[in-house]
């Protein structure tokens, strides 16, 4: 999948995560019906507004490494949800995640579900969000922890 020629002229900007109202413009950037599963090494966490993002190094089938950007909710929402503990995410460890893929084909996605190095599942979105291979019934019940082939 070539990522070098994304000549889209549509340069629009993201909504800031305002408390009580999430103007994420998620739909403008990501396609919740185009879900991929990636596995890679957590390289860095950017704990910033308007969206927390994780950088994950993913080894592609041809051996090259691609750094994916995993886009989360806002940092205050993550904090309120109890996911900001400094010992919870392990930089350098291997994570698997299902993502709504960026519409422009960039290696970035809106996080649905994350599998941690100790085989726990972090279901960040419930319900009717398209096809989530790590959360097949939309209730977190059927996550099998086996990522599909890198797409």
């Amino acid at each position: 999948m070539s990522r070098s020629l994304w000549g889209f002229a549509l340069v629009t900007l993201l909504a800031i995560a305002v408390p009580a109202v999430a103007h994420h413009a998620m739909q403008a950037e990501f396609d919740q019906n185009n879900v991929v599963v990636i596995t890679g090494v957590l390289k860095k966490i950017n704990w910033v507004n308007p969206h927390v993002n994780f950088l994950v190094d993913v080894k592609e089938p041809d051996g090259a490494t691609t750094t994916w950007t995993l886009v989360h909710a806002g940092p205050n929402q993550m904090r309120a949800a109890g996911l900001s503990d400094r010992d919870f995410w392990k930089v350098g460890a291997t994570y698997t995640a299902s993502l709504a893929l960026a519409r422009n084909g960039s290696p970035r996605g809106y996080v649905f579900t994350i599998k941690t190095p100790d085989e726990k599942f972090i279901y960040l979105t419930f319900g009717n969000v398209g096809v989530d291979p790590l959360n097949k019934d939309g209730k977190g019940g059927l996550g099998n922890g086996r990522p599909t082939k890198f797409q």
Partner: peptide, 14 residues
């Protein structure tokens, strides 16, 4: 730190 703007693909924002 705004980083999504360059990846916006439609005008939809809710």
């Amino acid at each position: 730190v705004e980083s999504d703007g360059a990846h916006m693909y439609t005008k939809e924002r809710g």
